[in-house]
Design a protein around this nucleic acid. Structure first.
Lengths: 328, 328
DNA sequence: TTGAAAGCGCTAACAG
DNA sequence: CTGTTAGCGCTTTCAA
């Protein structure tokens, strides 16, 4: 970068190169037909001045900002981040920048950000959130394409990309069965939480007893495991609704002398590195591929921006990652 | 938001209201002297058309974008997030938007993003990263103000906001001493890691034995605790370099029959909610106030944008959060 | 092969 | 009190 104080304009470049601004523009953008020597001279001048074309001016002319807005409805957290990174990655490859908006569960903030994004004429908007759940559309009839990622829109005409949580849960239980477990317990989050419900429903038929609903915390995992031990449930596997729960379960089981995975195999959900690797033994877990979800969302958005919208709910598979808690 | 397909321009508004664009502009921005009735009529027209002023046009005129770039040098992670949120919060209050750039430890990416931000004529840039460490400046002589947050710039003339890690460490040890502990061990991260070194140096005089350096992981915490138990060190407190390490320490101590905090008091570092609350007992920990750091950085950037730069390293205090692992 | 000029949407200075 | 006009920086016809 050069040491200018005011950023150079194309007029400065043109002047320094001794050409008109039109010529300078062509030279810098490889348009039109210019003498190679002229082109070179302009490039050099631009270099010397540390010239960077003013995006606002370009936008004004082109009607495109090459910017998308990313709104996280609830605060940015563990789930939104990989999503955002995936999206940012895919968008960056297409030279798009990302405007970050953290609405923090506040509808007022959300609408404020929406207006900001509209004012800035973003080419599109990605909406994401902390939990995989349907939410009301951002606003009716927006003049730019919108893609919902992780969360989905209640309007089926909107474009949403969501993980196949039920499928992931099924995979977990199928694996437990494949390693010979038949008495599977399920410990998961709150009964009013869509993810907890959906995953539980997907595995209900294979459970040795009704799911235990509680919080998404290690403490609940410990509590639930104690409960299972206390009430005499005969179980040889636990499918946990989150890695935190799984870890609590594992700790308590081992504390009570049950071997993991020999006596009880355990599978978590989220594949959260910190949890799965700190657990003893390391946790097998269901990975929702948030990164891929974000990338998908970004690509769907890019397609929509280019006039090829793909409305509807796009469901992406989860994958099972196996570690010590299910393999001996 | 209205159902237009192309966003309305001020000319549409003016036409609908039956006034000139100049008048419309004044009406919408509360400038000049207009009849109240006219003002109202224009406002209504704007409303009906769902008009949002084009930011690019404004930018072109005003020379300001009301946008700042946020570059995370290493990938966005646990430390950058609260920072970013704090900054975004402070900036949002000033109507500034944030362009997110994740450079992922890749200098090429970083320079690419820098150019993007310059092209977009951001009013300023915040640079942040995963670890509190000095780094080379983004580039020499940038035409916009830059503030480094959490990480700092090796150029003392740059503006950096960093946590007082040494102070935080001192606080931790002072508290341990205040509750009567005299034989304090220190288990921390890699010996080549600035944070580990700085914190260890700050407490060296109060330690019962040289610090144990290892990884920033629970596994290392467990290992180190086992080591302390095995080599016969007589200790009644452990100051851990991270909450993860602390948690590993606690688990192993309890497993070996030492009571926490009765026999050994433990303090962690980072005050990472997931860790401190899942630990049994909950962990006392040093909080670097990343959120406040981000807010500070944003405010320093805003000041610099307004022509009042505050170069140099700004050190912000850590605070000790007390929980069960140090109080009986 | 190059230059001149119009115009993207908006604001502000100046006329009327 | 309102309208006209110039100009922010750039790209893109259209002429020369």
């Amino acid at each position: 970068m050069r040491k200018t104080d005011r950023l150079a304009t194309i007029r400065d470049v043109a002047a320094l190169a001794g050409v008109s601004v039109g010529t300078a523009s062509k030279a810098l953008n490889g348009r039109g037909t210019l003498r190679a020597e002229t082109r070179e001279r302009v490039r050099e001048a631009a270099d010397r001045l540390g010239f960077e074309a003013n995006a606002a001016a370009r936008t004004l002319k082109a009607g495109r900002t090459y910017t998308v807005g990313m709104i996280t409805t609830d605060s940015i957290g563990r789930f939104s981040i990989p999503l955002m990174l995936g999206a940012e990655d895919a968008l960056g490859a297409g030279q798009m920048s990302v405007l970050l908006c953290d609405a923090r569960d506040d509808p007022i903030r959300e609408q404020y950000y929406l207006r900001t994004l509209l004012t800035r004429r973003v080419d599109g908007i990605i909406v994401t959130g902390r939990r995989a759940q349907a939410r009301a559309p951002l606003a009716p009839d927006l003049p730019v394409p919108v893609v919902y990622a992780f969360i989905s829109s209640t309007d089926p005409g909107d474009c949403s990309v969501i993980p196949d949580e039920a499928g992931g849960a099924a995979k977990a239980v199928e694996h437990l069965q494949a390693i010979g477990r038949r008495r599977i317990a399920h410990v998961t989050g709150p009964e009013h939480h869509e993810s907890a419900i959906g995953r539980a429903a997907a595995v209900a038929d294979s459970l040795v007893r009704p799911p235990l609903y509680g919080e998404w915390s290690e403490a609940w995992g410990r509590q639930a495991a104690a409960l299972l031990l206390a009430d005499g449930t005969d179980f040889d596997a636990v499918f946990a609704g989150s890695d935190q729960i799984a870890r609590g379960v594992v700790d308590t089981l081992r504390g009570a002398g049950r071997r993991v995975p020999e006596d009880v195999a355990v599978i978590g959900f989220d594949n959260w590195d910190v949890m799965v690797s700190a657990s003893q033994p390391p946790l097998s877990s269901v990975d929702m591929d948030l990164d891929g979800l974000g990338r998908s969302a970004a690509n769907l958005l890019l397609a929509a921006i280019n006039g090829e919208p793909a409305p509807g709910r796009h469901v992406r598979p989860c994958r099972l990652v196996l570690r010590g808690s299910t393999s001996i």
